[in-house]
Design a protein around this nucleic acid. Structure first.
Length: 195
DNA sequence: CACCCGATTATCT
DNA sequence: GATAATCGGGTGT
């Protein structure tokens, strides 16, 4: 399994968001605890001209990573209690952009994830952006980290998901640009978030 | 299953 | 002062 290179992230944000579906997030907690999960749902946030993007309206303290180098994590805190994970990606010349990871399917370290989520089963473990960060122990400490190098979090290549098995639809939980079809998920996958 | 609402705080207006 | 790229628990059907 190969780590996704920086060039993977250096393309149109919507294309990267779609192609991230099926890839695997590796989260290294410590030597004995290495979590793996396949990305099953993403959303593209296009940046400066996308009203729903945190990057909309220009660079500020919170959204700075979206303006930084591609292939890095952007982790933000929301609703007073949840973290959400993004990967910075955009075509050359575009000022900002990123992909929100909305849902993953656990592969390894499931017991650790259940413990973190205070659950006894895989049901509802990682089918939401706030849930998966809790399961994978993702917080502000990972904001800005390079995910193209082996470290505490990185992304590896995996199976190619056929285009016919990916659903493209509108984004969730936003109040602006609600008609843009920038959400991507694997058809018939039980770990995709509801709605 | 549908809808409603409270939790809790960083960030922006 | 309001809102937010959310979630889980509650009530009613």
């Amino acid at each position: 399994m190969k780590i996704l290179k920086r060039t993977f992230y250096e393309r149109d944000t919507a294309v990267v968001a779609q192609e991230l579906v099926g890839k695997i997030i590796v989260r290294v907690i410590d030597k004995n605890t290495i979590l793996q999960a396949m990305i099953v749902e993403t959303e593209a946030y296009l940046g400066l001209h996308d009203p729903a993007s945190h990057a909309y309206g220009g660079k500020r303290m919170r959204n700075a990573p979206l303006y930084g180098p591609v292939g890095h994590a952007y982790v933000y805190f929301t609703y007073g209690m949840y973290y959400c994970l993004n990967f910075v990606c955009r075509a050359p010349g575009i000022p900002a952009g990123g992909t929100l990871i909305r849902a993953v399917e656990p592969i390894a370290g499931i017991e650790y994830m259940e413990k973190k989520r205070h659950k006894h089963s895989i049901h509802g473990l990682t089918n939401g952006p706030g849930k998966l960060t809790q399961a994978l122990s993702i917080n502000r400490d990972l904001n800005g980290i390079d995910v193209t190098k082996k470290g505490s979090i990185y992304v590896i290549d995996a199976l190619e998901i056929a285009k016919k098995d990916i659903v493209i639809t509108t984004r969730v939980g936003i109040s602006k640009a609600i008609d843009e079809k920038l959400r991507f998920y694997i058809k018939n996958n039980t770990f995709v978030s509801k709605k």
